[in-house]
Design a protein around this nucleic acid. Sequence first.
DNA 1: ACCTGAACACCGTTCAAGT
DNA 2: ACCTGAACACCGTTCAAGT
Lengths: 214, 214
Amino acid sequence: MAPRQPLTRERILDAALALASTDGLDGLSMRKLAKSLGVEAMALYNHVANKTEILDGIADRVLGGIDRADPELPWAQRVRATAVSMYRALRHHPVVPMALATDQANPTSLRALQPIDDLLGAFYEAGLDDDGVRQALGAVQSLVHGSILLSTTGFVRDTSRTTPGEQLDPYVHRLDPDKLPHFSRVQPVLSAGDAESDFVRGLDVLIAGLPVLK
Amino acid sequence: MAPRQPLTRERILDAALALASTDGLDGLSMRKLAKSLGVEAMALYNHVANKTEILDGIADRVLGGIDRADPELPWAQRVRATAVSMYRALRHHPVVPMALATDQANPTSLRALQPIDDLLGAFYEAGLDDDGVRQALGAVQSLVHGSILLSTTGFVRDTSRTTPGEQLDPYVHRLDPDKLPHFSRVQPVLSAGDAESDFVRGLDVLIAGLPVLK
DNA sequence: ACCTGAACACCGTTCAAGT
DNA sequence: ACCTGAACACCGTTCAAGT
């Protein structure tokens, strides 16, 4: 809140990530962002061209913060480690996959594309051709982003997001067991699992089958 | 544009889907929606409580329009057919996965949950326990939604969305082949594939491995 | 060089008023 | 019962004005 330090692009991105983590993508407005920095909204435009540049900036930063896997690992373990690192980084800042999914961000920096390049290298090493590599990348990326994006929509609730006392899956309370018998059956354990380990289970299934794309 | 017919909830949802498909999720505003119906924005509130109800309504409708698989099929083919139908329905109305991913919609109707129930039934039939079923659902749903959401973000461009003359992957033009060697290599074929068949390839890999979750 | 105030063209939504 | 106009509290962004 304090306007102590001089305004910089980096401080703006810091504040944007902080604001988004508390108020969500919708709550990330230029006006509220400026207020959190102790400044008027228009001051931001001296450091960024527009809101898109802010969203690109936080996406670049979060994607750039993904841990790189040990290049000595065999390709399957490298895919696994990279995908898990992607999952964790994006999980911590779901505003980034949300902005990507809604075309509000489009990061292009080298560091943002680095994890993708690492995945691609592992797929080539697995012996896939260009088409197989493209398919493998799409599948792994879809699983990573999809797991994070859907974990916020109720079907699989993430306990790390659940405030104490909040009831899980409020809208699936009264299912008609005749109409949705399997949903009714699985409902008690829908919220029971750990989102990350569920993701990893699916990821391992996918990785094990990737050589089929050869 | 014509105010001929009486305003109804169904006509509002029709117009909302049409507006979203031309103007995107961002372009779907109460004011523009009303204008497309030849009415003032405030008239909408006689038929829906708020914008969220409209987003839930179109999500319900699109999810409810997913073709159900032949229940006589073996479980793997049933999963495949259901997931492909989900993909196609959502692909035609990407505003729905976008609204779901950003927590702007939360459909709860029986018809919206029916495809999920069908998937769950197939997973149980495959011999998975409750945890395995939850993991399988998360993986398949993530792959479906992720494939659609990421296909709009540039890494895999969907040719059905590309207007003639538009250049593909504009931001990946000048990659440094030293820094991103594999990205540079795959780039020429990144846009070459068909998004749906790429999705199905990944889906088949995943389905083939699902029994491992037992 | 950096920040602000006022303004413009938008939002979702409420409410009193019209028919 | 259904629709409208005006209003409120917001948006992103531009631009002239301040320091």
